[in-house]
Every structure is written in structure tokens, then in C-alpha cells.
Design a protein around this nucleic acid. Sequence first.
DNA 1: ATGAAAGCGCTAACAA
DNA 2: TTGTTAGCGCTTTCAT
Lengths: 333, 333
Amino acid sequence: MAVTLKDVARLAGVSVKTVSNVVNGYAFVKPENRRRVEEALAATGYRPNLGARNLRRGRTGFLALMVPELNIPYFGELAGLVLTAAQKLGWSVLIEQTQGTRERERETLASLGPHLVDGALVHPEALRAGDFRDAAGGIPLVLLGEHAVDVPIDRVAIDNVLAARTAVAHLAGLGRRRIAAIGRNPARGTSEQRMAGYREALSDAHLSYVEELVAPAEKYHRAYGAAAMQALLDLPEPPDAVFCFNDLLAIGALRAVAERGLRVPGDVAIVGFDNNEESAFSVPALTTIAPDKAALAEAAIDLVCRRITGETATPPQTVQTPFALEVRESTTG
Amino acid sequence: MAVTLKDVARLAGVSVKTVSNVVNGYAFVKPENRRRVEEALAATGYRPNLGARNLRRGRTGFLALMVPELNIPYFGELAGLVLTAAQKLGWSVLIEQTQGTRERERETLASLGPHLVDGALVHPEALRAGDFRDAAGGIPLVLLGEHAVDVPIDRVAIDNVLAARTAVAHLAGLGRRRIAAIGRNPARGTSEQRMAGYREALSDAHLSYVEELVAPAEKYHRAYGAAAMQALLDLPEPPDAVFCFNDLLAIGALRAVAERGLRVPGDVAIVGFDNNEESAFSVPALTTIAPDKAALAEAAIDLVCRRITGETATPPQTVQTPFALEVRESTTG
DNA sequence: ATGAAAGCGCTAACAA
DNA sequence: TTGTTAGCGCTTTCAT
């Protein structure tokens, strides 16, 4: 059916070794033979059978990317960048969705392994430290995003505490005094970090931490942001600013404010987190923390590839990638 | 390193054949042996090497999904659904991004093939009919979305003409007389279809087709929608309604209207296409055509799998999946 | 019902 | 510099 190395060899009148050498860019091939092989290659339209090559090499040639859901804009954007970064280095990526549940995350981690992929980038939502005990059959893992889980595994993330602090400091700098937060969720690692940054910034601005101004969010989706904002607006003394732990929550909050006939940022200023593409086009456009997602994707791919090739054998490291505060209309109408 | 069939066989004191039989659920294995094999399997934590299995079977076990970009919400959502549908049937999916350029689409199609994947779902943007000439090395292909390309290949799509017509009829039914369109682009297949539906609906409503009310869009991104809307609003006699060929364009249009201090739907009613999740939360929420994306994903996966297994050997077919008009605030403030 | 062995397409150690 | 050949881990005849 498909053209094999042997077919090419026969056509070129050389051995498979020589063809293999040419295909793999081995330098020492007699020019005459190289020419004939290349001709045969072109004539047959030969394409190496990756499965066979990798079986022989003890590699699969694939990486995995584990994320909650691709229809969450942040992960859609990130996945796109990861694919691009991987492709540049000649890797194919298998994307696995977990829906953010611990069980699916554990299953997925277990299903990964040397027989399927050579390495994986994982963005866990609910995994605990113990879940990593020789998971994934020992292939190199790189954790994406900051999490409470304290495991000796490579990580790439922005400084969530500082980012949250920056966002809230911006609000305080605008003269807002009742700054709420939406997104507290003990089950999520990043929630802890962002809470910490929130508290630090309040303290920096000599504002006190008010329990009732911190709204939980079960999921970081738009509808939950809207619901949380409604609750906040029902307070006897509603907030004059809100820091949302991601843009989806912020977009929901934006709607809730509009539905009350209130103004953003006039009555309530809003800051998000992630800089989803949609956030630049909401009405009003959303001020948000903009992580450098391309840098994140590239650093992660780079790291996992170096681990696979054994190029880097140092202890697990944490790479911090940059972020910026993107100021838009939702705080400076 | 990893546990192989041979290791399990040795531990269980049987031949690899017997282990293979157990692993593959072959019925006729002596209960005693089955028990011992299962014990050995559990003790070693054996996981089959997919590469080797597929090499032997002449399969790869992978499907490909070719899309322009994952950070476009429609494709992020669709990809997530495709992954889910594929997983249910035990397939892994390789996602390939083309950025919507014809060249990358051709390259990708060529890079696919029996050595990499067993079948592919492709959502082309710029491909021409000729580009499909024995592309992808003869593996089963399923086209996603409607396109101008007329090739004898399986397809899954909604009825774009009818959908567009429905959207515009809705606008006309609201009493709007100057209904514009944003998104004309001869290079894109769906553009033709949506233009046709637009014209049909105008004619149904006894409105004449006005060339200046049809705005082109190079890319179907938010910024292009905003630019097109601005141009439309600069017209001596601006439109009182706009049909955008996707939600991204509509979101951009929404912003452009807001920036002028005009009202949606008061001054201009807007309808989109795709029903991205964000469209339910924009201010105002967007009326849009909502294709049943889950049905699309499932039908496509189902079809390609049946072709691969040879279960379906009929001539290429076109499967139509349902859509609905989702009426929201942007047309009924 | 199960074992022995061939071979999927490829790479690489070993020879020549 | 190039040919020969042994596997990579698995499935699957063909025997038994």
C-alpha cells in the first residue's frame, strides 16, 4: 500500500541503510547514491512511517497537553500557542480535556505514559500533590500555571500573587475604597495566590479586608461572575470596584452591573485576569492582567523537550513568564 | 523500561499469544490461564504499546482535526466537542492549525496520511477543489462546514443558505428596511452561502439589494467587524440593521455602534452567526444563528470512523445538522 | 486452547 | 561509504 524504505531502496538500487541515511540527513553518502535516492524518493513520494520509526527509537514523537476545556477562551488561546510552539520543534501534540475534575485529571495522567507520548504539559485544576506519585509512567511533565500543589516537577507560570496585587493596586490607585473580589475557591490553586495578592494590595493601600466583599465562584465561567456580582450589588453597601479572578468572571460581572442600570467604571470599576481576546471588545473594554501566553507556551515546550532529550538534567525548576496590566475602559471610563 | 507483553507472559508462565488473547478480549482462554494472566497484568501494571500495536495492525489509532486557529472561539468550542466525541469511540485526535491560509492548508493535508492518522476532519478556509486530488494519502476525509469547493468527499454542515436567510428574515420581520451585511469575502466558501441567504431574505421581504450595504471582511475577527461597521455608519444613509457572517464580526460591530454613542437595537439591530459562548454575555446580548455544534462534531466523527472501518462504503454523502435562531437583546431591546 | 515464529517499517550495530 | 541484519512490541497465521 504505502511506499516503504525498501521500495525506495529497490528503485534506487541501493540498500535500505543508504536510503535511511539520506532520509535522516546523514552526511556521508556518496553523491551519486544520494542523487539516485533522492530521485527515487521524489518518484515514489515516500513518507516515513512515524509509528515504525518511533517504535524503533523508543519514542512516540508526541507530546500531550492536558487542559480543562478548549472552549474556555484562555485554554483555547493557550492550546493554539502550544501547538505552534511544538510544531516549530517538530512535535505533534495530543490534547486531552479533563473538564477540570480531579477524577478525570487523574485518569488522564494515568493514561499518558511512554507508550503514548514522550512528555506532557499539564494544567491541573483540582489535582493534589499525591496524585503525582509516579503518575504518567515517568515521562517528563511540566506544570502550567501556578497551583497550590507542591511537587518536585517543572513548572511554568506567571507570578500570580504579584499579578493580583498589581491589579488591585491599580483599583486602589484610582481612589476606590470598597474593592471586592470574585472567584474565591479553595479547590483551585490559583485562587489562593490571587487572594494573597488581593490582601497584600489592600494592606498596601491601608484598606481593611472585608469578608463580605469576597465572593466565591464555583466555576470560573461568565454566569458565575454575573451571579456573584449580583450578590455583591445586593449588599447594603455595595463595592465601588471588583477584582475578578479571571476575565470570564469579569465579563459576567460587567453584564450584571449593566442589568442593574449602573455604570462601569462610574459606579463600579472592574479588573479581570487572563486578557482573553474578547476582553478588548467588551463594552466597556476590560482592564485585565495580561499574561504573556506565547512566552508561557514556548517556555513549557522548550522545557519538556529538553527533559525528554536529557539535555537538561537539573532538579525541577520553576520558570516565571512575564505579565502586564492592560488598562482599558472598565477602570478608566 | 516499560512492561511488555513478554514480561507479562513470563510472569504468568504462559506464551505471549495467551496474554495477547486476554488483553484483546479473545473469548477462548482456559479460565486458569486467564486468571494468572490477569494477575500478572495487574501486578506489572502493563499498558500496551500503542505504536507497536498499530504498526502491526496497519493503523495509527489517531484522527486529525484541521482548523484555522484554536483561539477563534468557534473552533475552540468545536475542537472540544470533537475531542469528546472521538474519545467516546476510543480515538485520539491530533489538532492541526492552518491559520486559514491556502498554503498551510495544503501542506497540512499533505502531511496527513496513513502513516500519521487513520482519518481526518478538515475545516478548510481557502482550499480549492483541485487541492484535494489524492491529498492525505487516501485516508478518509470529512469536510466540516459548507464550502464552495465541490469535491466528492463526505461533508457535515448546517444549511448555511437557509440559516442566513432565517437571520435576515428575522431582521426584516422586525420592520428593518436598510439591512446591511458584514463579511463578504470571495475567498471563503461560507461567505457565498451566507450572501445567497441574505439576498433571498431581502427578496422575500421585498427589499432591494443595495451594494453599498454589503461590507467585505478580510478576516472574520472582531477588529474587522468594527472597521466594517464604522464604514457602514459613515454612509449618508446608514443601515438600521446588520447581519454579520459570524459572531466575532458582530461583536466588533456592537462596539463600533457603542463608540458612536448609538444604541443597539434602537438605532441598529445586529444578528451574528455561530453562537459563541461570549455572545450570550455581551452588552447587549447577541441574537445569532446557533448551529448544533455537538451534533456536527458527533456526526463527523461517526462518519469518519465508519469510513475507516469500511462499515460505510457508499458514495460520499452530505450530512446536514440542525441550527436555530437564538433571539437575544441585540434585536429585541 | 495455546505455543512458536513471522513480520509490520524503521534504525543502528556490525561487517565489509 | 554501504550492505546485512537484528530487533523495537505487538498481532496473527500456523501448528500442535
